[in-house]
């Protein structure tokens, strides 16, 4: 290669620094993985994204005002009193089990599960591939199909039949044992659903991560749009004014 091409300011150079790669590549003038200079290819994307995000935010901020209710009044309880939307999934769980289990133990366990994922799945062959494989895609779809109706069914069951109306004493049974049994059965059921695919470790993790994400969104949506006065189930158009916690 002519030095003129890559270092025009070094006119007196007639050599270049060459490194022998540990791998072969069929492509000429490219690194083993296929690379492009960050300038301009990466920076153009970043600049466009920044402009896009800023423009979208500006339009949104002009069109929609952030909510501001009456001044805080500790003597006047809001009904319903809702946490911010990303914690409403926990508040939804709170309706169905002992608060220590729903508000602290389950989220701690979920975070521990998330952090342990890379230490459970050590196989590098499918890195960088969406959903791992075609099988992984099917597992994602089936995990969603499995999780959504069961969650919706459980929410409806606990509203209209109520575990606590069937058995309320002692607290250990409706607050701890039944919810833990239900969560355990749901998890075992999820494994039973994906087992026929003969999944590897990553594909099992795909099933459980999908179960978590779907649960997160279903509970958040249920609690945000379908919980009205006294956190009872209602339809979005029947929500009392100010029930949306954005």
């Amino acid at each position: 290669m002519n030095t003129q091409e890559f270092a025009p300011q070094q006119q007196d150079k007639d050599y270049g620094l060459v490194e022998v790669m540990g791998r072969s590549t069929p492509m000429v003038n490219k690194g083993p993985e296929g690379t492009l200079p960050s300038w301009p290819y990466l920076f153009v994307w970043e600049a466009l994204l920044f402009l896009g995000v800023s423009a979208m935010l500006l339009v949104m901020s002009i069109l929609i005002d952030a909510p501001l209710r009456e001044a805080a009044n500790p003597n006047l309880t809001e009904n319903p009193a809702k946490a911010p939307w990303y914690f409403l999934n926990l508040q939804e769980l709170l309706l169905h089990m002992n608060p220590s289990l729903a508000g602290v133990i389950v989220p701690t366990a979920v975070l521990a599960f998330l952090m342990s994922i890379p230490y459970l799945d050590r196989n590098l062959s499918d890195i960088g591939i969406w959903f791992a494989s075609r099988k992984g895609k099917l597992i994602t779809i089936w995990s969603t199909i499995y999780t959504v109706p069961l969650l919706v069914g459980l929410i409806l069951f606990d509203q209209y039949i109520r575990v606590r109306s069937l058995i309320s004493e002692p607290e250990l049974i409706p607050g701890w044992l039944i919810p833990m049994a239900v969560m355990g059965l749901l998890s075992a059921g999820l494994y039973a659903v994906v087992r026929p695919f003969r999944p590897n470790t990553r594909e099992v993790l795909v099933a459980y991560f999908t179960g978590f994400v779907v649960t997160f969104f279903v509970l958040t949506i249920a609690s945000t749009f379908f919980r009205g006065l006294g956190m009872n189930l209602t339809l979005p158009w029947n929500l009392p004014p100010g029930a949306l916690s954005f």
């Binding site: 909510p67 501001l68 209710r69 009456e70 001044a71 805080a72 009044n73 500790p74 006047l76 309880t77 809001e78 009193a81 809702k82 946490a83 911010p84 914690f87 926990l90 508040q91 709170l94 002992n98 608060p99 220590s100 729903a102 508000g103 602290v104 133990i105 100010g242 916690s245």
Partner: peptide, 25 residues
């Protein structure tokens, strides 16, 4: 940040949110 406007929405959301933390065993 949700608490800072100090309106009914933020007051009761933080009350609910910190109540959840209050259930730590």
């Amino acid at each position: 940040g949700y608490l800072l406007p100090w309106d009914q929405l933020s007051f009761w959301a933080i009350t609910v949110g910190t109540n959840i933390a209050g259930y730590t065993p």
